[in-house]
Computed example of a mutant assay.
Amino acid sequence: MAEFLVTGSSGQVGRPAAAALRARGADVLGLSRRGGPGAVAADLLTGQGVDEALKSCGTVLHLAAGNNKRDLRLIGNLTAAAKRAGVGHVVLISIVGCDRIPLGFYRDRATIEQLALASGVPVTIQRTTQFHSLIDQLFSVQKFLPVVLGPRWRFQPIAVEEVVTRLVELAVGAPQGRADDIGGPAQHSMRELHAAWKQATRSRRPGLIVRPPGKLSAAYDAGPNLVPGPAYGQRTFEQYLREKYR
């Protein structure tokens, strides 16, 4: 079996992460329900085939996610099988501020972290800020609205490829538990992000930036989704937009 196993190896983060590990000369396999070239067949949701997939595997980079409650079962089945197989390191991605922002999806990320840390398997958890592509998508999906809506919060988007670089660095190193959070090169208001997107896409629709009421805005106002101090990421949101919409 491979030295490294990447779950979610066909996804936005998993595919380049597997490629980056192979570029280092590492022996890498992906994990998917159907298998295929460079991938082993296993189902993390049911646990079928996972023990066999992890046999003789040294490190698992866990990047598979359905973005729903099923992700709790994925991490449970993965870490249980990893413990049985004697896997030496499980690396997983999470979200900056997930334990302080009252969104169901974020609470699930925090629970996944807790399950991984309590599993008895050596783990490293890397929290990151939102990807550039997520901010872009927030605006792009509103293409049929007369105005582009956005919450009056601050964000610090980061490039996927820089997150991949960090995850690979962690995967080839020793387990760290909770690693230092990483974020993009700059913090922006939603108004600034929309202005950059509007210019890059040549959109004429105005933006309407509103402050949603309640606990969610109060939480975001405190800035738990931001990473203070020196930035990890170097690629700006404007650079991402120029390359995508040129």
Rank of each mutant, 00 (worst) to 15 (best):
R34L: 13
V147H: 12
Q187F: 02
S133L: 00
V227G: 10
G97P: 11
V28Q: 05
M190C: 09
L134W: 04
T111C: 06
L29V: 01
R33Q: 01
L208V: 10
P175V: 11
V160N: 08
D221R: 13
A42C: 05
L167Y: 02
S56C: 04
E52D: 15
D43T: 05
L5Q: 06
A231V: 01
D43I: 05
G214E: 08
H89D: 01
P122N: 04
A196S: 13
A200Y: 07
G14Y: 02
Q126L: 15
R178K: 14
R33I: 04
V163W: 09
D27N: 14
Q187N: 09
I125H: 03
R34M: 10
R178C: 06
R204Y: 04
A26G: 07
R242P: 05
F237L: 11
Y106S: 01
G11P: 15
V28N: 00
A85F: 06
L21N: 04
V40R: 11
P102I: 05
A85Y: 06
L117P: 06
E161W: 00
I101V: 14
D71V: 03
L21C: 08
A17L: 15
K83T: 01
A195E: 10
Q12C: 07
R204A: 14
V168I: 13
E192G: 04
G30Q: 11
G38N: 00
S133V: 01
D51Y: 05
I95P: 02
D108S: 05
P102F: 03
G35I: 14
E52V: 02
R235N: 02
P151F: 03
F155Q: 07
P151H: 06
Q126T: 02
T201I: 13
S203F: 12
A174N: 13
P122W: 05
L74N: 09
A186Q: 15
Y232V: 03
R202E: 03
